[in-house]
């Protein structure tokens, strides 16, 4: 934990409510990005991020500061996400409610879209993103967490093992299975995407 984070935690423990807001503002973007990557849905990501900060608020007085705040928040998020997924499975809900034909700008009102005047490339890019998201959705929650933390958040296998409370060997095998699973999923769309394998 860096000295600024330490000061914020100390201020929070002393009863300074503004310190928590500062902490949220410091971490909200990566937390929300991870939530989007784990859930694949704007509303679920919003709710998951809020759950994470609520749990952090409750647990911060006991936070020992042995890890970075971000790692700690990631740990809370992954555990919460796995819990939510179990709960939803038990209730018979599907995690991914968005359909590929859904108007993204309506479903995700705060996403800033990049301007692309060429309808052809825009459609191709849209399909590509859709297939990538679908490949992610095929993963079990723990596999998806391992993959996303390694691939999009650039955490080392050791750091992921520490965050998830798993052995490095387990993280490696989960990651390997995740990539294999996505490879199968993407191979199915290879022709549709018009992509050639790199050699």
């Amino acid at each position: 934990m860096d000295s600024h984070e330490q000061r914020l935690v100390h201020r929070f423990r002393e009863g300074d409510a503004a310190a928590f807001r500062e902490l949220v503002e410091r971490c909200q973007e990566p937390v929300f990005q991870l939530a989007i990557e784990l859930t694949g849905d704007w509303d679920d990501a919003d709710d998951l991020s809020q759950q994470v900060f609520i749990k952090a608020y409750r647990a911060l007085p006991n936070f020992r500061g042995e890890t970075k705040i971000m790692s700690w928040l990631y740990r809370i998020m992954v555990n919460t996400h796995i819990d939510n997924a179990r709960k939803n499975r038990a209730l018979g809900w599907r995690i991914n409610p968005s359909s590929p034909d859904e108007d993204q700008s309506q479903a995700e009102p705060y996403i800033t879209h990049t301007a692309d005047d060429n309808p052809e490339t825009r459609t191709a890019s849209h399909y590509m993103q859709d297939h990538i998201n679908r490949a992610l959705e095929t993963l079990a929650p723990r596999q998806r967490s391992v993959f996303v933390l390694r691939h999009y958040h650039d955490l080392s296998l050791k750091e992921i093992a520490r965050i998830l409370g798993l052995s490095v060997g387990t993280v490696k095998s989960q990651l390997f299975r995740a990539i294999q699973r996505m490879q199968k999923e993407l191979a199915f769309y290879k022709a549709e995407l018009g992509l050639e394998e790199s050699s």
Partner: peptide, 30 residues
Amino acid sequence: QQLLWTLNIMDQRQPPAIDPAYWEGFWNRL
């Protein structure tokens, strides 16, 4: 090679760029 190809595809995922206005509402709800 197949797995490398898969990772190259996954690299092309574009993370959503979030409008700053979203964060104000986020804090209020939280």
